[in-house]
Write a protein that binds this DNA or RNA. Sequence first.
DNA 1: ATGGTCGCGAGGCGA
Length: 267
Amino acid sequence: MKIATWNVNSLRARADRVEDWLHRAGADVLAIQETKCKDENFPWELFESNGYEVAHFGFSQWNGVAIASKVGLTDVERTFSGQPAFGKGGKDPVQEARAIAATCNGVRIWSLYVPNGRALDDEHMPYKLQWLAELKDQAAGWLADDPQAQIALMGDWNIAPRDEDVWDMDFFIEQGLTHVSPPERAAFAAFENAGFSDVVRPLHPGPGTYTYWDYTQLRFPKKEGMRIDFVMASPALAARVTGAEIDREERKGKGASDHAPVIVELG
DNA sequence: ATGGTCGCGAGGCGA
């Protein structure tokens, strides 16, 4: 079984590419981030006509997460328990469309779009850190309840856990950029301490192995990317991994998402 | 080439 995650940066703008990719990659399960649409605009038929069940969580033009599966899709959950809400400028806080779960052939899949901290001193940064801390507490609880649980926390984590996960660490430090700060890395490491592991890195080590390239500054042709999309697997799921791929080809050409799909093969 | 990007939705924001 192949499970994959992909921040598509708008599903409607990428519909043809997504359909082609599903055929080419042969993914059984795809966790999608940044659908950027509401249910009423969601391209249901794109998935159904290709043999996938699909569940979506999106209520505006921002964020939006989905799971498509050829191998069953049950117990759909939108937001995780305790997921922090965010309110801009005194507005009522809302739980954003950043997390959806479903069980697919015995694997609990979470499609996650971790908040972007925007800047080290921005109010979105504490929101991001709390969001991750609450998710980690939940995930640790799932494992405590069932140490054999097969859980995949997959998506756009908006964190580069190691210096080699960005194209120039000095640039990030000089510019005071996010994704590489000690608090963000600690938030990520907490998942590893809870028993989850990045199952792609051992098969595709760095440096120079990235999943995201900014649209600007010719970052992709210059090979200046970031590794920020991860499949974090519970121990029982990690034990099943037989292969992995970062589909850098999909980042090429006109009409590409700025993220590449990440695929994990299970035995 | 001294600027170089997208998407949403219809101006500016978010990434």
